[in-house]
Design a protein around this nucleic acid. Structure first.
Lengths: 151, 151
DNA sequence: TTTCAATGGTTACAAATGAAACCAATCTGG
DNA sequence: CCAGATTGGTTTCATTTGTAACCATTGAAA
């Protein structure tokens, strides 16, 4: 029996990784060039901007980050005075995180840039392609959720 | 005018990154658990297994890795005696990389595992979903190629 | 043919990451 | 009530990564 060959270019994990890397690298310029944020810091800002107040654990779940990443990102944003921590009344292990005025200002400045980035990216496609992207990603996401559920 | 909010969960760069991270993390068990390879090392092995002989530059292009990653991965695989370097006859800066018997054996052992992984992942979807995934990814890839062409 | 730019590849250093240990605080079962 | 397990979050350490500088060689132009 003939030894098999794997075509890397069409291998799903590789394709996804490469795609994400390219898109995400390009988008990182928006927050890196502008404010010198790292990706975890940007996600933290985005999470708090979107939800108002969150705990570190909730942030980690929403934005798919390991708790050490969250911890470090929060520390840095606090150092910049972009967020504050408020201890929970009932459970003193928990802190509630909220953006300060400065943090909120940065968030509001960034949102339109993020949306414009996405819009421009999607503008290149036909309606059919956009639909395929939406359906394809949704299907893949469904399948990775199962991965998490089982282990 | 109302300040805008960005829904992170539906933001394309974030979705792609999360997806790639989940899939690629899961797949990494195949080469990490088995042989303690890093992702660049696995890709190097895959590239050489697929093409027989390549230069480091070609490897970097094919598998979308920065040249330092390639350099380090090659050094490690050489240390394991999974590949050898042959200086180019005409240009002494260039080296041609080839898998040794041991490297080839590892490659051949891994290919079926990789294919099985992909097959199982795709088995969860309907024909329509698989078609959407194929079309959607292809469209996205086309668009990121443009990104590279322009900068 | 000498000089200067470009190319293939490696190395040094700083920053980002992941794993595991850790510290409190809280919850649970006996 | 209290010993052990669990949870929220931080820290430490080793590994991985990215950037930039670097070395050697080759190519191109004057």
């Amino acid at each position: 029996m003939e030894p098999e060959i794997l075509e890397l270019e069409s291998f799903l994990p590789y394709r996804l990784y490469r795609l994400a890397d390219a898109v995400s690298r390009e988008f990182s310029r928006v927050y890196k060039d502008r404010h010198g944020l790292t990706r975890p810091e940007w996600r933290t800002l985005a999470g708090l901007g979107q939800h108002g107040t969150m705990t570190a654990t909730a942030l980690g779940e929403q934005s798919a980050m390991h708790k050490t990443k969250v911890s470090r990102a929060v520390a840095e944003l606090e150092r910049r005075r972009w967020l504050t921590r408020t201890p929970d009344e009932n459970d003193r292990r928990v802190e509630h995180l909220t953006l300060t005025k400065a943090g909120l200002a940065a968030y509001r400045e960034m949102v339109p840039l993020a949306k414009a980035f996405e819009r421009e990216l999607l503008a290149k496609f036909s309606d059919g392609e956009r639909a395929a992207i939406a359906e394809g990603l949704a299907a893949l996401e469904r399948s990775t959720k199962e991965l998490k559920a089982v282990p």
